[in-house]
């Protein structure tokens, strides 16, 4: 597997999870969650702590990362989001409040890093998690395991939404909170569940991410624009669109940088952050409602028509 593709797949799986989480929180609680940044970083530090202090492969600690993210999500919902929703706060207020929560989490990360250094003589501010990776068939396991894990999680979540009573009530509340309320559904429980799943996906995504890049206290902050880019590319209102959007943004960043650097020289690397955002801007100019707004059903026919020179 080409080196860019291997780390690209890991990074893309991480963005798929985080962008999916951002979308889920937005369509349920109308909140654009900036705290996704440090929730992701915390997920990485949970996996890191487990690996260096207790040993074994980092994957053993990924479930813990997810649970810790859920906990951070619940704290955010109960302490911040729910009181604001009850006061019918505007979307901008909801969004800015999560920025504040993110700064609190970031400070927590810095304190925790100092604690690790003082107590265990560790250097947690620049971590290469991929050096702890396991091997399958003579190559790193992460490009294989992480995309499969992402697909597994999304399949389980899809079945939960499609088949279980609580999952259906989640879809009902997302579509029409008023009717869901007068039908006897408690939207509070649905929103709490969204933060449990969305927070877990954020932190697990952060743990994924550290397998492809250097783990630092600001890793989440640096990648937050791409999580949002993925969610926006997905159309913001579609959970599956957000997941696909995140995946494409991640893969595009690694692929485009690799090939452009081959063509134009290494100076391109300095502009790597611009590439996914450029892709997002171009897609939105052509399809304003993102991937979810594409005419998927008639797309093959239209493309075939365009190739024959027929206007559809």
């Amino acid at each position: 597997m080409a080196p860019w593709l291997a780390s690209g797949l890991v990074y893309a799986s991480a963005l798929a999870l985080t962008a999916g989480g951002i979308t889920l929180l937005y369509i349920t609680t109308r909140t654009f969650n900036f705290a996704h940044a440090s929730m992701a970083t915390w997920g990485f530090y949970v996996a890191y702590t487990g690996t260096v202090l207790y040993g074994g492969s980092p994957y053993r600690y990924f479930p813990l990362s997810f649970l810790f993210g859920s906990l951070l999500g619940v704290v955010c919902y109960v302490g911040l989001n729910r009181p604001l929703l009850r006061r019918r706060a505007a979307e901008i207020t909801l969004m800015m409040s999560t920025l504040g929560y993110d700064l609190v989490l970031l400070s927590g990360i810095q304190i925790y890093c100092d604690y690790l250094t003082h107590t265990f003589r560790l250097f947690p501010r620049r971590v290469t998690m991929s050096s702890y990776d396991a091997e399958i068939f003579g190559m790193s396991a992460s490009p294989l395991i992480l995309p499969l894990t992402a697909i597994l999680i999304l399949t389980v979540f899809h079945l939960f939404l499609a088949k279980t009573k609580f999952g259906i009530s989640m879809r009902a509340t997302i579509e029409n909170p008023l009717l869901a309320g007068v039908s006897g559904m408690n939207s509070d429980k649905v929103y709490l569940a969204a933060w449990v799943v969305g927070g877990g996906m954020a932190s697990l995504g952060g743990a994924f991410m550290s397998m492809a890049m250097t783990g630092t206290p600001v890793m989440g902050m640096m990648t937050l624009p791409f999580m949002f880019a993925g969610a926006i590319l997905g159309g913001l209102y579609s959970l599956y669109g957000g997941i696909l959007g995140g995946f494409l943004v991640g893969l595009a960043e690694y692929g485009a940088v690799y090939y452009l650097a081959m063509l134009g020289g290494p100076w391109v690397l300095g502009y790597r952050m611009a590439i996914p955002l450029l892709i997002m801007a171009i897609v939105l100019l052509v399809f304003p409602s993102g991937l979810a707004g594409l005419p998927w059903g008639s797309l093959p026919r239209k493309l075939a028509g365009a190739m024959r020179g027929v206007k559809s």
Partner: peptide, 8 residues
Amino acid sequence: MGNVFAGL
């Protein structure tokens, strides 16, 4: 208005 869940 909005008295059924259209997506369900």
